[in-house]
Design a protein around this nucleic acid. Structure first.
Lengths: 239, 239
DNA sequence: CGAAACCTTGACAATGTTCAATCACTGTGG
DNA sequence: CCACAGTGATTGAACATTGTCAAGGTTTCG
C-alpha cells in the first residue's frame, strides 16, 4: 500500500521510518461493494483491518443461528486488534460492508511483530485502544440504564457536528434504520416507536432519514439526565 | 510499596529493573474496610489502582442521582488506565469496597511516565487492556441479546472452576445478590426470579449463596446457544 | 428476643418483542 | 407512462420480559 497514508495517519505516523516502510509492504488494500462479506470468521481472526472509506458492521453469530451486530465501524475505524496477543482464538465475527468500502488488511502476526519492535507504535495502539475501551464502556452503561428512546436520543446527540449550535440542528442518519436499531440494541419496530416518542417529547421533526432538532436542550435534558456523562460528551460519532 | 510484588506480578515483572524500582517508590498501599469509598470522583480520575486483595465496585452517577454499577473488580484487577492519555477528563466514577480490601494506587501521571519509558511495560499494558476489552465486548453482546436468566446462567458458568467436571458442580456466589444483580443489569427482584427460573429449567439447586448444578450441559444449552462463544469460553471469572 | 439487612413473592405498570398488515418509496419491464 | 414487485418503514394487537411497589419471609447478630 502507498506509504504516504502511513506517514500521515495519526495511528501510525509517529513510528520509525522502517516501521512505516514495513507497514506499506505488508498492508493489502481491498475494495468491496455494499453488502458483501469482507472478512469471514477465519479471516477476521487472522487479520487487522482499517477502513479507508465507507462503513462496515461486525456480526457475531450464536449457536442458534441468531445474529447480533456488535459494532458498526466507519472511516478511520479499525478492528481485529483483539487477537494481537491472545493464543486462544475461540471467538470470531464476520465483517460485512454497509456501503461500498475501501479497507486495508494486515496479518495479525505481521502487525504484532511491528508493534513489538517499535515503542511509539505500541504507545499509539495503547492510546487508541483505550479510547475504544471508553466507547465500549459507555455502551455498557447505556444498555444497563437507558431506555430505547434515550439510547436513540444519545446517538442523535453524538452526531451533532457543532455542539454549541443549540437551535434548528440538522442531522442525517448514516445508514438503514434497521441497522441503526440493531446497533442500539432494539428491534426496527421499537426504533420506529422510539423515534416517534422523541418527536413527541422533544419536538424532533423527522423526514425520512433527515431529522431536525429545533431545541437541542430539550433532547439533552431527556437523554443526558440519565447518563453519567455531560453533553457534549467525548464519544462523538460524526462521520 | 514492596518491590517483590512488582518482580513477581505478570503485568509488571518483565519491565526493566529501574522501572520496577520506580514503581515500588511511587505506588502507595492502602487498606479499607468493607463498604467504604476508596476513590472518589476526583481521585478516580488521577489514579491508577490495583486490587491486591478483596473486591470493589465502580459506580457511575447520573445527573438525576441514579447510580449504575458499571463493573465489579476482584483480586488482581485494576482500573483507572482509561485516563492515561486522555486530556479531557469529563467522565469519572466512584470506587467503593465490596469486602475488606487492600489496594495500591499510583498517580496516573507517574504511571504514564513509566509506561512511556519502558517498551515492555507498554506492551504488557497493551496486552492486558486488550483482554479487558474482550470482556467488555462480551458484556455488550450479552446485554444486547440475552435475557436476564441467560445472563445469570452465563455468570454461573464462568464461575465454574473446572470446566470439564460435568456433574454436581458446586458454586458459591461471590457477593450480595443485589450487587450481582446490578452487575448483570437487572433489579434484585428480577435476579431472584431469574435464579428461580434456572432452578426450574436447568435443575439448579439453590441454597442461599450456594448453588449446585447437577447437570452442567443443561445449563450450557440454556445459556450458550444464545451466545457467539463456546463453553468453556475465555472470559472466566473465578476468584 | 428483636432489630436490621437482605431476599423473595405477588400484583401491577412500563417497556420491548413478535407477528401480521399496511404504507411509502424505488426501480424494472412492458 | 403505468403497473408491479421488492425493500424498508410504520402501525396495531397480543404477548413476553422486566421494573416498581408493597408486603412478608429469612438470616444475622447484638
Amino acid at each position: 500500500m502507498n506509504i504516504d497514508f502511513f506517514y500521515t495517519n495519526p495511528l501510525f505516523c509517529q513510528s520509525m521510518p522502517a516501521t512505516l516502510q514495513n507497514l506499506s509492504h505488508l498492508a493489502r488494500r481491498h475494495f468491496y461493494k455494499k453488502n458483501t462479506i469482507i472478512l469471514d470468521h477465519q479471516e477476521s481472526i487472522n487479520n487487522f483491518f482499517y477502513i479507508l472509506k465507507g462503513s462496515a458492521k461486525l456480526i457475531k453469530e450464536c449457536a442458534d443461528g441468531q445474529e447480533v451486530v456488535v459494532d458498526i465501524l466507519s472511516q478511520d475505524n479499525y478492528s481485529g486488534e483483539a487477537w494481537l496477543f491472545s493464543a486462544e482464538k475461540r471467538e470470531s465475527y464476520t465483517v460485512c460492508s454497509v456501503t461500498d468500502i475501501e479497507i486495508f488488511t494486515i496479518a495479525i502476526e505481521d502487525l504484532k511483530r511491528l508493534i513489538c519492535a517499535d515503542q511509539v507504535l505500541t504507545l499509539n495502539f495503547l492510546q487508541a485502544i483505550l479510547e475504544k475501551q471508553q466507547t465500549l464502556s459507555m455502551s455498557v452503561e447505556h444498555l444497563l440504564s437507558q431506555t430505547a428512546a434515550q439510547r436513540l436520543g444519545c446517538f442523535l446527540l453524538r452526531r451533532c457536528s457543532e455542539p454549541h449550535k443549540k437551535y434548528n440542528v440538522q442531522i442525517h442518519l448514516p445508514y438503514d434504520k434497521a441497522l441503526l436499531a440493531s446497533q442500539l440494541g432494539m428491534r426496527p419496530e421499537t426504533f420506529s416507536r422510539a423515534l416517534h416518542c422523541l418527536s413527541r417529547k422533544c419536538n424532533l421533526i423527522v423526514k425520512g432519514e433527515d431529522i431536525e432538532i429545533p431545541d437541542l436542550d430539550k433532547l439533552v435534558h431527556y437523554v443526558c439526565d440519565h447518563c453519567s456523562k455531560v453533553f457534549p460528551c467525548n464519544s462523538r460519532i460524526i462521520q
